[in-house]
Design a protein around this nucleic acid. Sequence first.
DNA 1: TGTCGTGATCTGTGATCACAGTTAGGTTGG
DNA 2: CCAACCTAACTGTGATCACAGATCACGACA
Lengths: 253, 253
Amino acid sequence: MVARVQPSVAPQSRLAAPGAGKVGEVSALDEVGSLQHETLGERVTGELRALLIAGRLAPGEKLSLRRVAEALGVSMMPVREAVSRLAADKALEVLPGRAVRVPVLTLAQFRELTRIRLVVEGFAAEEATKVITEAQIAVVARHEAAFLAAAKDPPDPAAAVGANRDLHFALYEAAGMPSLIEMISRLWLKAGPILNLDMRHEPKRLDGGSAVVAHAQLLAALRRRDPAAARQALVEDISAAAEHIERTARLAE
Amino acid sequence: MVARVQPSVAPQSRLAAPGAGKVGEVSALDEVGSLQHETLGERVTGELRALLIAGRLAPGEKLSLRRVAEALGVSMMPVREAVSRLAADKALEVLPGRAVRVPVLTLAQFRELTRIRLVVEGFAAEEATKVITEAQIAVVARHEAAFLAAAKDPPDPAAAVGANRDLHFALYEAAGMPSLIEMISRLWLKAGPILNLDMRHEPKRLDGGSAVVAHAQLLAALRRRDPAAARQALVEDISAAAEHIERTARLAE
DNA sequence: TGTCGTGATCTGTGATCACAGTTAGGTTGG
DNA sequence: CCAACCTAACTGTGATCACAGATCACGACA
């Protein structure tokens, strides 16, 4: 049907971009990173992503483009773009003729997601342990402390969820693999609603739970520079949380 | 900033959907799968995805929403949605004030992508080998034969690219993990432009290349039900292709 | 009292218009 | 003849309007 999308422009004919700046001239203006003013659609996307990962949007909850637009004080257009992106990641789903909602995972889907997380995040932990710096370990430790504080009595579920997220991603980012981070983000986007909604509703799980010991083992492995042990600690962290979800959470079918 | 997106509807208050169909009654109407008519935006997305994976859109090639819309005979709106989705997957990128183009990978990005592919697709191959059926093996073998035929003299690059894709995904789908397939598709979407554009331009690599022996080893491992060997064969297939790309292809920076 | 039909309302999808920013090409001045 | 400016076309983004389809609630009929 579509023979050529862009017949007129040959990409090879344009090897080097002309560039708007003058060549050979270095000034202080080159320092500023041309703060590309974030487009409105991207901002909405980020807002919804944060809400999903934090578990503040429950599985099955229905969203309305117009309502979201009104709540965020923007037009319907950026919301459409954001929902399109998130739906492409299956972080949201659009029912045929109905509305857009947060997907409700079946038990099989949740188990598959967990298996993938074990592989991908385990790999990330292993690679991160090989190249992590002292300063980065300190950052992880700081988030671990924050998580511990939030899990203590009285527990602060929202803070715990955020600290847990920061801890994990601080580790993953140490691997220095941006595409991997992006991939893991997508996994969290899909698992976030169940995982963190649960953690939010059952703060008792936090204190004395398996997460604290897994995090401690993870940090110890990092300090020992033991990739296999770090992976093992992460696997236990993910597995324990998944088992708890399977026991308690409401999964479809 | 945004406290609650949808304040009026409590998701818990709507535990079970009412359902339009009558319960307890089984008729012929339950057979028809509620044919949801594919939306226009989805069709455009699929069209662009196919073009990207097949390597028919070269890295650095610029796209214009209006041109694409005109070429596909649709309005600009569905194209915007498709580009939004693909840009979210980083299969396309939108320059700040310029145009949208297919990304040009740096050497570091390509290497990272390859490492991730080794982990994820290797895992998929391993899992698939554990549960693959005879019929599914036959399907893989058929695509292998098609690939062999397309690689022979005279080589048919387009057919070879398609057969190679079908072969790999026939294997991965045998694992029965939909989210994993989706994840691998995204990886191919990003690597496709370089990998298959190269294969298209250098058909000599096909005949007598490492791909045919890797595929043969893969099939042998499948028939032996040897997950580790299947993974190894796939790793060699991916690695060999990646090495060739690194030697010949034009990578940024 | 239970069930079905029906209309108002809300849903996402698509099209069209408006706009600021950039690019490319042509023209003018040196 | 070369370079710099300047204009015109084109870019993605956002907003608004239009429309088919689905949902839901109310009311009428059995």
